Measured scan of single mutants.
Amino acid sequence: GSLMYASIFGNVSAIIQRLYSGTARYHTQMLRVREFIRFHQIPNPLRQRLEEYFQHAWSYTNGIDMNAVLKGFPECLQADICLHLNRSLLQHCKPFRGATKGCLRALAMKFKTTHAPPGDTLVHAGDLLTALYFISRGSIEILRGDVVVAILGKNDIFGEPLNLYARPGKSNGDVRALTYCDLHKIHRDDLLEVLDMYPEFSDHFWSSLEITFNLRDTNMIPGSPGSTELEGGFSRQRKRKLSFRRRTDKDTEQPGEVSALGPGRAGAGPSSRGRPGGPWGESPSSGPSSPESSEDEGPGRSSSPLRLVPFSSPRPPGEPPGGEPLMEDCEKSSDTCNPLSGAFSGVSNIFSFWGDSRGRQYQELPRCPAPTPSLLNIPLSSPGRRPRGDVESRLDALQRQLNRLETRLSADMATVLQLLQRQMTLVPPAYSAVTTPGPGPTSTSPLLPVSPLPTLTLDSLSQVSQFMACEELPPGAPELPQEGPTRRLSLPGQLGALTSQPLHRHGSDPGS
């Protein structure tokens, strides 16, 4: 009898404990919600809404976190579960008819179910419309201010047509639940991603989709105040780019002037030289400038040598048109050559190039014969006009050509200096018209024969001689050997007369 009593008592207590286990969990969670309300000092109306929603959600799901349970299964099984949970929507909604099984599984994985109690606001006026909503159960109302403009029910759709707008718009009203509602919502990016994977279904979906109420604000059109608020930074940046392009296009129409201050000032006329910023005076940081632009901040801005204009002085008759350009485009679109090309026009420029290279940067340069637009006047290309890779490749080509020119210049200078040193070592320090008596009659020769300089066969020296023939050397430049009979510069000019005159010897006659 005691054994029977113990078994009955144990079973009854276990049954009672299981009955009250759900209630215990409910009270535990309710205590957490109330502690949250007390800690954050939530006001009474919002506090009442929180408690009511918790009670309804507990009775609806029995305190089970559906998302946590669903995430515990593998992905393939999750797709089947989501397809079952959203079967009513996918079967009865017209846009989803005719979709393949794979497309429906992908869509079912992207849908999220939302449960809303009465009085809950789903979308506020001015919120971004980031999702498309399908009503599965219940009814909602749409308000503009305090005026109800629409009441939607089961199988209705609200949001915005995503295929017509590249960016999400703003809501033009509040969406509030009238009863307990079940909503299926899919985010904008998720829907577009699935439709991109199934393009054959995309056309059918957009053609058959009928949005019951379009929440997009109709005033959000390009150029409206609301649109400016939504895309303020983007609009200002776009206007700045367009104004920069218009100014650079105007600059290219004036090829007669070359400016070292950047493309923003290349198009300024002579009357605007004294102004601080020219056409860019209202925004000094709008356009890029070269490193020399920092010198323009000092006094005497109108007389600054940074602004270059072609000189009108005539060229000498024998002067060549100019050196070879550094870039391939210089032959086609440049009416002034790079300062480095002028360094190779003569030997005198070679000796004085490194010492006063900055001073020569603004000297007169030889002109190319074609009066085409200036290379320095070409505006900086924006990322939309020329690819970045093209600019980098041009810079690399320019750097390689500069290296080759520097190597060639160093070799030419070394060769010229070597020839000058050899000339100085071969010439005796001094010569006299009267020579010392020699031991015999073989001493009648006034000077030792001097062998002429070897013929220069280097390509670089031939180019130097060509430049010497075309360029007029300055007075202080050293002379180079030329073709024809060679003669030492330090010898007297009348050596031929010395050989014809008898030598005057000093000596005593033994017979006297």
Rank of each mutant, 00 (worst) to 15 (best):
T130V: 09
I135M: 03
S136A: 08
G138W: 03
I142R: 01
L143W: 12
V147H: 08
V149G: 02
G153Q: 10
D156P: 01
F158G: 03
G159Y: 02
N163C: 09
L164T: 13
Y165Q: 07
P168C: 10
G169Q: 03
G173F: 09
V175S: 01
V175G: 02
L178R: 09
C181F: 01
L183H: 01
H184S: 08
I186W: 01
H187A: 11
E193T: 07
P199I: 01
W206P: 03
E210T: 10
I211E: 01
I211C: 03
L215P: 01
E229D: 07
E229H: 11
L230D: 13
E231F: 08
E231H: 11
E231V: 11
G233N: 15
F234H: 13
R236K: 06
R238S: 12
K241P: 10
L242C: 12
R246A: 08
T248F: 09
D249P: 13
D251S: 10
P255Y: 15
P255I: 14
E257M: 11
L261K: 12
G262V: 11
G264F: 04
R265G: 12
G267I: 13
S272H: 13
S283E: 12
E297N: 05
G298A: 08
P299L: 03
S304Q: 15
P305E: 15
P305W: 15
P310L: 04
S313V: 08
R315A: 15
E324A: 11
E324H: 07
E324I: 10
D329A: 11
D329I: 11
D329W: 02
D335Q: 10
N338A: 13
S341K: 07
S341C: 10
S345K: 09
F351Y: 14
S352C: 04
G355Q: 07
G355Y: 13
S357P: 06
S357K: 04
G359T: 10
G359L: 07
Q361C: 08
P369S: 09
A370T: 10
S374K: 07
L376S: 13
N377L: 03
P379Y: 01
L380F: 08
V391W: 15
R394A: 09
R394T: 09
L395V: 04
L395E: 13
Q401E: 04
L402Y: 04
L402C: 04
E406T: 08
T407N: 03
L409R: 03
D412C: 01
D412K: 15
M413N: 11
M413H: 05
T415I: 11
L417G: 06
L420W: 01
Q423W: 05
L426Y: 12
P428Y: 06
S432L: 08
P437D: 10
P439N: 05
P452M: 09
P452D: 12
L453T: 07
T455G: 10
L456W: 12
L456A: 09
L458G: 11
S460H: 04
S460N: 13
S462T: 13
Q463I: 07
V464T: 12
S465V: 08
F467S: 04
F467L: 09
A469R: 11
Q482V: 08
L491A: 12
P492R: 10
P502G: 11
G507S: 08
S508Y: 04
S508E: 12
D509T: 09
G511C: 06
